[in-house]
Amino acid sequence: MLIDIFHDTVCPWCRIGKKHLFDALAQWQEEEVHIRWHPFLLDNTVPAEGYEFRSFMQNRKGMKAEELQQMFDYTQRAGEAAGVKLDFEKVRLAVNTKLSHQLIALAPTSVKNDVVEAIYKAYFEDGLNLGDINVIVAIGTAYQMDAGELKLQLTNHAVSDAVVAESTFARLNGINSVPFFVINNKVKVNGSHSVEVFLETLNRAALLDIPAKI
């Protein structure tokens, strides 16, 4: 089974949706699953040094400070229910996520899912700037990627351009919010649904692949 996941690494609902999907896969275990991660840059105009997080979010959402806090509290509770930590007190910067998606693209397949989770943790639990190349290299080296080679690859315009192009392609093909999941190129799931919904979707996708009897 092939699962394509469109996400951004500063999207809390993407982290929740990832957890729900992987919990569903742990229960399902019907066939081998291959995951492909796709970038969806929510805002590629953010500079490498980032913006002050709360003022940026207030402007982006058109919310007052109290309303924004209520949204954070709700999202944090949803994260806790899913089993992931979202510490919005630690998050100080709204960041550009292009480098983090480059790291995911460069990571070996065997550790790619773990690298994705490490990036989410770096932002939502440690409050690190994902636009800082040193932060991204440190995450990569924790998974046996060579620091010098990785830094060269991350500064390669071809890798950067590929991330932007893939994100643009997703938007041009009708994806306008994340997380967004496509299973076996047939069944689409938009949003961070429950484990039960993902289980139902996996079963439906598997049935669609069963050849019709003659």
Rank of each mutant, 00 (worst) to 15 (best):
Q58E: 13
E117C: 03
V195F: 00
M145P: 04
K121T: 15
Y74M: 13
G62I: 07
A138C: 06
L154H: 10
F53Y: 10
V189T: 02
D73T: 11
V95Q: 01
T109N: 09
T109F: 04
G131C: 10
F124Q: 03
I16T: 02
T141Q: 14
P179M: 03
Q69I: 06
D4M: 04
D43Y: 01
I119Y: 12
A65Q: 13
G148W: 02
Q153I: 06
Q27Y: 11
G50C: 08
L99W: 01
Y51V: 05
Q102Y: 00
D126K: 15
F40V: 08
F53C: 03
T168F: 11
L106H: 08
G140E: 07
K112I: 05
N44H: 14
G174Y: 00
I35G: 05
N129I: 07
N184S: 10
L150T: 04
P12W: 09
E49L: 09
E30G: 13
A165C: 08
N44E: 14
H20F: 02
P108I: 05
G174F: 02
K213F: 11
E125T: 15
D126P: 06
E117K: 05
P108S: 05
P179C: 04
V95N: 00
H38T: 07
Q70D: 12
R92K: 15
A78Q: 13
S194D: 03
H38M: 04
F180Q: 01
E32Q: 15
K121P: 04
Y120R: 09
Q69Y: 03
K64V: 13
Y74D: 14
V46S: 02
V116I: 11
I133R: 00
G127Q: 11
G83C: 10
E89W: 10
A78T: 09
A78K: 12
V46R: 03
E49Y: 10
G174C: 02
L99A: 04
M71I: 02
L25C: 08
V187M: 10
S160H: 15
I183S: 07
S192A: 15
L42T: 02
P179K: 04
L99P: 00
T45N: 12
L93K: 14
V159Q: 10
A162T: 12
T201Q: 07
F6V: 15
E49C: 06
I175Q: 01
F198Y: 05
M57Q: 12
G131F: 01
A142L: 09
A206V: 06
A205C: 02
T168V: 14
V137R: 03
T109H: 08
F53G: 00
K19D: 06
S160A: 15
K213S: 10
E32P: 11
F181T: 00
A165E: 13
L208H: 06
E166K: 13
A94M: 09
F40N: 02
